[in-house]
């Protein structure tokens, strides 16, 4: 089962390696990981998407909590949350397909962020499923390159995750 975990960490030397090493060393899998500083410059927040049964997830959470540089671990699986991912897609767009690409851009409320005579670069934001769907439609037109950020999540409601 897929789980999305938020991890607040000390923004310090080697912290990413500690988290990544823990996953690889204990045979846990990382589907995606995104990390950036929070409002407080000494704290970063990671969003990790992983898979496993309840026992594995319990171990992942407990092992993460044991890491000294980790301040807080929240498993969003049973919570209400908003999930967003960003994808940049470079699509082949020559005379006959340019209009079709733009229609898809419109349908998915995406944006063209770079144009050449032979291509469009598109920015798509949304839940990972929406990005998957857009990619399915764009593939027949010729995708040259895709970059995905991995999802970030935030809980619904007024309460925030704090350290």
């Amino acid at each position: 089962m897929k789980h999305t975990i938020s991890v607040l960490v000390e923004n310090e030397f080697g912290v990413l390696a500690r988290v990544a090493g823990l996953f690889s060393g204990r045979g846990f899998n990382i589907e995606s990981l995104s990390v950036a500083p929070t409002l407080e410059p000494d704290t970063s927040r990671m969003t990790i998407v992983t898979r496993g049964d309840d026992r594995i997830l319990e171990q992942i959470t407990k092992q993460l909590n044991k890491v000294i540089s980790i301040i807080k671990v929240v498993d969003f699986t049973d919570e209400e949350y908003v999930e967003r991912e960003l994808a940049l897609v470079k699509v082949t767009a020559e005379s006959d397909s340019r209009a079709e690409v733009l229609r898809i851009v419109d349908i998915f409320r995406a944006k063209v962020v770079d144009v050449t005579p032979k291509s469009y670069t598109i920015e798509i934001t949304g839940a990972p499923g929406k990005i998957d769907a857009a990619l399915v439609l764009l593939t027949p037109l010729g995708i040259k390159e895709v970059v995905r950020s991995g999802p970030v999540v935030i809980g619904r409601g007024s309460k925030g995750v704090s350290n």
Binding site: F13, G14, G21, L22, G25, I68, S69
Partner: peptide, 16 residues
């Protein structure tokens, strides 16, 4: 050595 001992220490520090 911080990289090498990360999985076999409770914690480690590189003093910068």
């Amino acid at each position: 050595i911080c990289g090498i001992t990360r999985p076999c220490t409770k914690h480690n520090f590189l003093v910068q």
